[in-house]
């Protein structure tokens, strides 16, 4: 997708303006879509549980577009891509395991009478 610039060093891959504009257009479109969805969803008959995943999917598509083209990942070294994506893997691990654990003991917090928690000094 990059412009042909044969005189450039091999680590230099300028992206084409058309591509960048197209990506920008799609990003704006997706932003409008996600705002519109959130405005319409509660009034519609669509299942409420799906609103959040849909918003996240749209965000992830946007993230993909930014990563791939604005951040040149499409042309980057595989190693750099692995490095970056590994961060999300570890973040997911952190979120996932913590969520799993707190979910198990959440009852013991919810059932604890709040007025028994030592109150902050005024």
């Amino acid at each position: 997708m990059a412009d042909q610039h044969n005189d450039l060093p091999r680590f230099n891959h300028p992206a084409s303006i058309k591509l960048l504009l197209a990506v920008f257009g799609s990003l704006i479109g997706l932003t409008v879509l996600t705002v519109a969805t959130s405005a319409v969803w509660p009034e519609s008959n669509l299942p409420a549980d799906l609103a959040f995943p849909v918003a996240m999917i749209i965000a992830s598509v946007k993230a993909f577009l930014v990563c791939a083209f604005f951040m040149h990942m499409w042309w980057d070294k595989k190693f750099n891509i692995i490095v970056f994506l590994s961060s999300t893997l570890f973040a997911a691990l952190f979120i996932g395991l913590t969520l799993l654990d707190t979910g198990h003991y959440q009852n013991s917090i919810d059932n604890f009478p709040r007025n028994e928690v030592a109150q902050p000094p005024e």
């Binding site: 952190f94 395991l97 913590t98 654990d101 707190t102 003991y105 917090i109 928690v117 030592a118 902050p120």
Partner: peptide, 23 residues
């Protein structure tokens, strides 16, 4: 500021801090 993430007096969870810390 007492943001209430780790301090039970403000609705937080001390065990959550331990998860954060040991991660």
């Amino acid at each position: 500021l007492h943001i209430g993430i780790f301090d039970p007096r403000y609705g937080g969870d001390p065990v959550l801090f331990q998860h954060f810390f040991w991660f």
